[in-house]
Design a binder for these strands. Structure first.
Lengths: 211, 211
DNA sequence: ATTATCTATAGATCTATAGATAATGC
DNA sequence: ATTATCTATAGATCTATAGATAATGC
């Protein structure tokens, strides 16, 4: 989970380890309700510590939030992988979207996690490996769903991520989570060529290839 | 367009009028590229004025941005209405979404306009009337599309707004505008009850009624 | 001795205002 | 005379650090 250390890193002193955990836990609570606008002072206060201590463990605010973000990413993607092992792709994808919609509706941090993955942040070299790994796993999940015909083939991982982001935004903006998830899900399916369809799906099923 | 004045408001002095326009124009440029994070100092500089002047015309940053946001809202909704007069609903909606996607991809301010409409901001009493008007017009547009069977009936104006917001976010997050718009459009259609459809569309076509 | 923690505050970044100065237009 | 504009700065809000103090563990 933690991929940020290269040097040997001798084990933390007992109190320091406790405090580190208190910091992460406090930060996580705040991240859930406030996202990136959480404040370092508040984290310290909630953890029952001084700000200095927080900065000892995490040199910048970004370093702290990367911890929270990577944890959420990891959780979410594992969940998706598990679902795909158990269920048929179409069912798994549906379950995944609805679960995400529900979680996002009560976790600002999770919404911002998706944003940060797509947008500028989280781009530090420290998490380059993590990002790469995540990308590959997402690709695998998506291609599996595409081969099964559950998701249109001209969708890239970037588009998929972007849609998850969009779903989060739509939910903050007051859309009903269930409905929003359904709309996007329906939209993800392979479009059927019918009336009122003048253009736009011309690159249909571009990226599908065998296992 | 400007609905913020109740008292008679004697006409501005010639130079003041020029400056006011310079301010709005400068602010609009910055809003297009930076959205709400535009800075008052920059606005002043770009307009070739001092900050004090900007604040003379717009007492707060919010007052300035409300001006920009209402202008964009008005433009967009008029465009949708016009399309619905000319074309068949399904075609009009499609054209509208693609136009929005394209515009949003190059106008941060437009994306944030949708956000602000749904979320907390823009809630001042000063634009209560404007908001009401906008809401009614959106409702009319949506219901027209629903009666024509181009859009699923269980969608509320809030959901529709939310999806526009989400589309914007998906585009910033790196999704291809054309594709994102297509996915949401497909998703908006009345879902056909077929396989892999376990639940979620049970409230189907709830809000449809005759003209 | 070494490692951690605390408090108080420097520094950066904005919005908004005050008070002195300049431009209009009756 | 009135209305508008300018510059310089107060005030709010954060992140991050410095230097003095306290807790661990060999």
């Amino acid at each position: 989970m933690v991929l940020t250390q290269s040097p040997p890193t001798r084990p933390l002193r007992a109190d320091a380890r406790r405090n580190r955990e208190a910091i992460i836990s406090a930060a996580d609570d705040l991240f859930r309700t406030q996202g990136m606008s959480l404040q370092m002072d508040e984290v310290a206060q909630r953890a029952g510590l001084g700000v200095g201590t927080v900065y000892r463990h995490f040199p910048t605010k970004e370093a702290l939030t990367v911890e929270l973000v990577t944890y959420r990413s990891e959780t979410v993607i594992t969940q998706a992988e598990d679902a795909l092992v158990t269920d048929a792709p179409a069912v798994a994808i549906r379950g995944f979207f609805h679960a995400m919609a529900r979680l996002m509706s009560e976790d600002v941090g999770l919404r911002e996690t998706f944003k940060m993955q797509s947008t500028a942040d989280l781009q530090g070299e420290s998490c380059a490996y993590f990002r790469q790994d995540l990308h590959e796993r997402k690709l695998a999940i998506m291609q599996r769903a595409q081969r099964a015909g559950a998701v249109r083939g001209d969708l890239g991982v970037e588009d998929f991520d972007a849609l998850m982001c969009g779903m989060g935004q739509a939910i903050v903006a007051g859309g009903r989570p269930e409905l929003i998830a359904d709309v996007i899900l329906e939209g993800l399916r392979v479009p059927l060529g019918d009336g009122a369809d003048s253009k736009g799906s011309d690159a249909r099923r571009a990226g599908v290839d065998g296992a």
